[in-house]
Simulated scan of single mutants.
Amino acid sequence: MIVAAVLFAYAALLCTLVPRLLRGARWAERAPRLGIVAWQAAGVSALVSAAMAGLALTVPTVRVSADLAQLLQACVMALTAQYASPGGAAAGAAGAVLALAVLGRTAWCAGGAVLRIRRERYEHREVLDLVGRVDPVRGVVVLDHEEPAAYCLPGRQRRTVITTGALRTLDGDQLDAVLAHERAHQDERHDAVLTWARTLARAFPSVPLFRTAEPEVARLVEMRADDVAAARSGRLTTAAALLAVAGGRAPVAGLAAGGSTAACRVRRLIEPDRPLGRARIAAGALTAAVALAVPLLVIGGPAAAASQLNYCPDGTPTAQVSTMR
C-alpha cells in the first residue's frame, strides 16, 4: 500500500506542479530541445507512475525462491492472502481498474491518432501528386497559390511543400531558411513528438500536465526548427522568412513554418541569442532522467529487497508475504 501511495502521490505532483514550472519558461525558449525533453519526461513519468500504482495495488510482492515451484506457490499464497479480506480485494480491484484505465485509454487514443494521421497523410499525398509539381533542384513540391506558405508532410514518403507565392516573396537565403526549418521537423521526427503530446491531451483532457504540454510542445518544436534554420541562414534572415510565410497554414497532418506562434518566434529571433550553457543543459537533462527513474526506483526497491530473501528456505510453505500496495 505504501509503494502505491508514493507512486500515486508522485504522479499527482507531476501533473499539478510541472505545468506551473515549465509553462512559458524562459530557459526552455533558450534550449527548446531540452524543453521538449522535459515535457516528455514529465508526461511519461506521470503516466508510468499512475499505471504502476495500480499494478502495485493489484499484485503483491513475494519473497523470491530459487525453486520455481516454491515461487509459484508463494505467488498463489500472496494473492490468496491479499484477496481473502474485503479490504485487500477492494484495493486490488481499484488498482486493476486504475492500471487498465490508464494503459487502455492511452493505447486507444494513441492507436486512433496514428491511424487518423496515416489516413490524412495518404490522402494529402494523393492530392499533392495530382496538383503539385516536383522541383528536383530544391527537392520540394510546388503548389500554385498566391499565399506565401511552406509546410512539410512527415512520414516515410515525406514531402516539403512550398507555394509559388512563397517562391516569389522569399529571396534565396530566406528560402533556404524556410526549407531548413521544414527539414528539421522531418529529420528530428517532430511529428511523433506532437502526436504523443496530443494523444495524452486527448486521453486525459482534465489533467493539467497533459493539457498544458500540448501547446507548449508545439511551440517549442517550432522554436527548435527555427534554431536549425538560424544556424544555417542567420537569425535575422530566418525571422524575415518567418514573417513572409506567417499567414500560411499547413494541413492537419503537416507542420508549417508559419502559424499562430510565428509572432513570438520572430521576436525571439530578433533578440540577441542567449543559448543555455552546457552546465545548465546537463543539469536539465539529469533532472529529466531522474524524473523518469523515480517510479522505477520506487517500485524496484522493495522488489530488489525481496529478491534477496528465499521464500520458504526450509522447504515448508509459510505465509511470509510482503505486500507491495
Rank of each mutant, 00 (worst) to 15 (best):
M1Q: 10
A5Q: 15
Y10C: 08
A11Q: 02
L14P: 03
C15T: 08
L17F: 13
G24T: 09
A25E: 10
A25I: 07
R26N: 09
W27A: 13
A28M: 06
L34G: 11
I36T: 12
A38L: 14
Q40I: 15
Q40P: 04
Q40S: 15
A42C: 13
V44Q: 05
L47R: 02
L47V: 04
V48P: 01
V48S: 04
S49N: 05
L55K: 01
L55T: 03
T58Y: 09
P60Q: 09
T61L: 15
D67S: 09
L68H: 10
L71A: 13
C75P: 05
A78N: 06
A81M: 10
Q82E: 03
P86K: 02
G87P: 06
A91N: 06
G95R: 02
V97Q: 01
V97D: 03
A99C: 12
A99P: 01
L103W: 02
T106M: 05
A110E: 09
A110L: 13
V114R: 04
R119I: 04
R119K: 11
R121E: 15
E123Q: 15
H124C: 14
V127F: 09
V131D: 00
V131N: 01
V137C: 07
R138G: 12
D144W: 13
D144V: 14
H145L: 14
A150Y: 02
A150E: 02
A150S: 14
Y151V: 02
L153N: 02
L153F: 00
P154T: 04
G155V: 07
V161Q: 03
I162F: 08
T163Q: 03
L167M: 05
T169A: 09
D171F: 00
D171I: 01
D173C: 04
A177F: 07
A180N: 07
H181D: 11
R183G: 00
R183T: 00
A184I: 02
H185Q: 06
D187K: 13
E188W: 02
H190Q: 08
A192M: 10
V193Q: 08
L194P: 01
W196A: 12
A197T: 06
A197Q: 03
A197M: 04
P205G: 05
V207Q: 11
E214D: 15
E216C: 07
E216V: 03
A218P: 03
A230M: 06
R232E: 13
S233T: 06
A240V: 00
R249V: 11
A250Q: 13
A257H: 06
G259W: 00
C264W: 03
R268M: 14
L269F: 07
L269D: 10
P272W: 13
R274D: 07
L276V: 14
R278P: 14
R280L: 15
I281W: 00
A285W: 08
L286V: 15
T287R: 11
V298R: 00
V298W: 01
G300R: 02
G301T: 15
P302G: 09
P302Y: 00
A306T: 01
Q308N: 12
T316W: 11
P317K: 10
V321P: 00
T323N: 00
